[in-house]
């Protein structure tokens, strides 16, 4: 089944076209990486996909239903968005943060229901933050905090999870842990879309890549089809070397300069 479909969508901040005439469709349970240089429109694309931004032109369908007609609460029951970095102005306990992911299901004045607590427990469990549940969120390391934010997204019981550079501030251990968590979620049937700067991580974990350049989708394909010297050189304007990963066989990128 088609999880997401965009038909020639465009978006601009002021006069700058950031996303231009993008057509893209994702099937359910796919693990997709959006890659491309800075300013290629990756993050904007992600925000268009979850309804935070509205396209100036074109149409978006989510799980067969037109996105533009739906209230954002309804969209949030299907699609969860994890921003690049979350700043917590108030020092909530971890489980309180995860509970806010239930907002799309809650009515004003009403108390949390049994389903809410179940979803929160489940999310905390899957994201493996059980040990942290009573901890104040600002006492956590960035890696732990990222897991909590993913748990909050999971509490939305989404069918599709969108993440904006989820590993960009993390050390090797936490990078790996986050990507393994996403892989686990994906094998359980969740559609995962990750905006990535790290081409090697993207190549290791994503089944399909979407390469964006100057607001357009330049190409889509498996890591083998896309991570190629010629394509990367053209898009990133940098000399690179592409070699196979010794264990996994997927392409990995090395810088030529220096």
């Amino acid at each position: 089944m088609i999880a997401f479909r965009a038909k020639s969508i465009s978006f601009s901040y002021d006069v700058n076209r950031v996303v231009e005439d993008v057509t893209l469709s994702l099937t359910e349970s796919e693990f997709v990486g959006i890659i491309g240089p800075n300013g290629a429109g990756k993050s904007t694309m992600l925000r268009l996909m979850c309804g935070i931004l509205k396209p100036a032109a074109g149409e978006i369908e989510l799980f067969g239903a037109e996105l533009s007609g739906q209230p954002q609460r309804k969209v949030a029951q299907r699609v969860a968005f994890v921003p690049q970095e979350t700043h917590f102005a108030l020092n909530f306990a971890v489980e309180e943060v995860v509970m806010t992911g239930r907002y799309p299901y809650q009515r004003p004045f009403a108390r949390e229901k049994k389903e809410d607590f179940e979803a929160v427990n489940n999310a905390i469990n899957v994201a493996a933050v059980d040990d942290l549940r009573k901890r104040p969120v600002n006492s956590l390391s960035s890696g732990e905090r990222q897991r909590v934010v993913i748990a909050r997204a999971l509490a939305q019981s989404p069918q599709m999870l969108l993440l904006d550079e989820p590993t960009s501030h993390l050390d090797l251990h936490h990078q790996c842990a986050i990507m393994e968590l996403l892989k686990k979620l994906n094998t359980r049937g969740l559609t995962v879309v990750v905006v990535h700067h790290d081409l090697n991580l993207a190549s290791l974990y994503c089944q399909r890549l979407v390469l964006m350049h100057r607001g357009r989708v330049k190409a889509t394909g498996t890591p083998h089809e896309l991570i190629k010297q010629k394509i990367l050189k053209e898009v990133y304007e940098t000399e690179v070397l592409v070699m196979e990963h010794p264990d996994k066989g997927v392409p990995q990128v090395f810088l030529r300069s220096g």
Binding site: Q72, R73, V75, A76, A80, F81, P83, T100, Y103
Partner: peptide, 19 residues
């Protein structure tokens, strides 16, 4: 609830359905 969520950033709030 809206206030609790907005303290976690405007994008988070927008994603959860707060205008």
């Amino acid at each position: 609830r809206e206030l609790d969520i907005i303290s976690q950033g405007t994008e988070t709030a927008a994603g959860l359905g707060i205008n």
